[in-house]
Design a protein around this nucleic acid. Structure first.
Lengths: 144, 144
DNA sequence: ATAGTTTCTGTAGTGGCTACAGATTCAAGA
DNA sequence: TCTTGAATCTGTAGCCACTACAGAAACTAT
């Protein structure tokens, strides 16, 4: 909205605030080569332009979607190299979506096991707990 | 089942095999104090007994349920201190279950966003991708 | 001039392992 | 007994994606 915050010469602090990415993280991204080294003032302070601000926001959105920095690197290299196709992007998105869904299934299994445990456990204030017993004696092991 | 594998003097390798926890991880658990330092042979090789084997299996099961080592440490200190109550255990299990469920919700939101992205993307083999556009131009930002 | 904020570089810590390197020790066969 | 190969030992460094410092320099405002 405000024209001021969309200035063309951003300090790292301004960029941080605008993008929601912490200063240290921005420098980290530069160090690992996922953000390009920006121009510098005579003093050595970094200055960023619109281009870089967009790139950083792209990275942040991808991170929020759970993409790894390696995946993001690949995505960005497609863009940078101009070899970007829907096919390539789709493959990455699809693979990532599949792994997210797998993780959901894992966690759902976990959650129901934990609920079952908690249900057993809630009953008493006695100094012996069936949950601990189960975990110690191998509740998941049919041979016991 | 076999009496042999349930021997009383386990080498670290035997313990590893029995518990399904890698040798390096067992040593790591010892280093961080979640497993007690075992007896040693004259040569310095570690020897474990039933007690420790049970403890390690307990830890492994807890890890499979997604408990952090800190949570496990707390659980174990309740057991070790004899202060174990259903209440205390229940609190830990319940808190953990809640955070698992929260993570599930997060991931479900992610998954549907990713699906929506993939759906847009699957269409063409052209060198411009709507997904990349969205991510670059701030699809989630209503002010754009 | 001075105070307070921002930025700079470099390094180390987080969790939960995992992977080495290089030295010893063990177990089994000839 | 000797030898070979497997197991174990210690210690350190790497993984991911940051985060948190320390100490110095440079900005901004009064």
């Amino acid at each position: 909205m405000s024209a001021i915050t969309k200035s063309n010469n951003l300090s790292i602090g301004a960029l941080s605030e605008e993008s929601g990415v912490k200063i240290e993280t921005i420098r980290y991204y530069e160090r690992i080569g996922i953000m390009p080294a920006p121009a510098r003032r005579a003093s050595g302070h970094r200055i960023y332009g619109r281009e870089q601000a967009k790139r950083l926001s792209f990275i942040r959105r991808c991170r929020e979607l759970g993409f790894s920095l390696e995946e993001i690197r690949t995505l960005l290299s497609l863009v940078d190299g101009g070899e970007q196709t829907c096919m390539g992007v789709h493959a990455i998105v699809h693979t990532h979506a599949a792994s997210v869904k797998e993780k959901i299934r894992d966690l759902q299994r976990l959650a129901s096991t934990l609920d079952a445990m908690a249900a057993k456990c809630a009953q008493g204030e006695v100094p012996y707990c069936p949950v601990i017993e189960d975990l110690f004696d191998g509740a998941n092991n049919p041979s016991n």
